[in-house]
Design a protein around this nucleic acid. Structure first.
Lengths: 177, 177
DNA sequence: CTGAGCAAACCGTATGGTCGGCTCGTAGGA
DNA sequence: TCCTACGAGCCGACCATACGGTTTGCTCAG
């Protein structure tokens, strides 16, 4: 798809990626590309929305259908994040993309709305809010950190994932830890 | 300073910020700016290095000199992150910058080396490695998340900070939480 | 007098966006 | 069934502008 090509180019060349470059990667001409997206900014905006959608789909796909305990969405979030972090590179790519795109007009609002939706979903997930927040933020942090290195130790990733999952299976506040 | 101006422009306009724009923000001409930095890429590289340095200085300044217990550096890291997250906006800005710059040739290596140094420093901090990792990644995640919203609830930030600090004052593995 | 610091004009190139035209699938009339 | 008209999708040439980097020359401290 066109947006996949855009994601690849923006991921490697930053938010300043040229329409030419994206079009070439997508196998179309610049004129053809701008026939679908009125302008470069609209293209990047569509990319941001697609990104958020893709990640949400990955999370919901990672939720265990047999899991009905509180925190199931949090566990899906953690698993989706770490899955892509271990064998693919798509999540860190998404982090770069989100950050790179955050300077494009309109994208900040999209990301903000998306984050708001996540917060509400976590609130409805049954876990103590602070506990859910800590777990999700830690997963975010691991994904962000995964950006800067050639690849984190897979064994460490596995342990961290297990720890976060274990934390999500307890309830109540974290204050007494 | 010139790099501060560069940080501001790159933070708002992305890694594609023009030399002109940075020069104007810094109050010098493009020619004058390129007199100090051979090229645009060198300027952005210097910016990345300065960024890493500034953050490291903030962390070390946030370490309580009377604190000699294991995890003191982790606590400094947490405090530095949350301090800037609450009253300034410089840390989220640093996150945007790091991500935006990560596509600039050479910057990825700088950030990677910096991250490696942090890992070593945390290893020498006396805390159980997995515990330190969780705390630091959670702080990173909170900083990253702070990007997308107009501002997280300060009270929630305060509580999260206290939680992370409390976690850093216990020792041993986290498995039994 | 000299050289560092800076400004401004300048150059070739790359960019975002527009435009005329080409191709082809298809609706519809005979 | 055949022919025609049409419109969506796409291409490649084109234009004005903005870009990175170089060069020239001014200013002023030592």
């Amino acid at each position: 798809m066109v947006l996949d090509a855009a994601a690849k180019v923006v991921g490697t060349h930053g938010s300043g990626a040229s329409v030419d470059a994206i079009a070439r990667q997508a196998g179309v001409s610049k004129g053809g590309l701008l026939h679908h997206f009125r302008s470069r900014d609209q293209l990047l905006l569509a990319l941001a929305e697609d990104l958020a959608e893709q990640f949400a789909a990955a999370v919901h796909a990672a939720v265990d259908p047999r899991d009905h305990a509180p925190g199931r969405l949090v566990r899906g979030y953690v698993n989706a994040t770490f899955d892509d972090l271990i064998d693919g590179t798509s999540v860190p790519e998404q982090v770069v993309l989100a950050a790179a795109l955050s300077t494009v007009p309109g994208v900040a609002e999209v990301l903000q709305r998306d984050k708001q939706r996540w917060n509400e979903a976590f609130d409805a997930d049954g876990l103590h809010p602070q506990r859910a927040l800590l777990i999700v933020r830690a997963a975010d942090g691991v994904a962000t950190a995964g950006l800067y290195e050639g690849g984190t130790d897979p064994e460490e990733l596995r342990r961290t994932r297990q720890l976060l999952l274990a934390l999500s299976r307890q309830e109540g506040p974290l204050a007494d830890l």
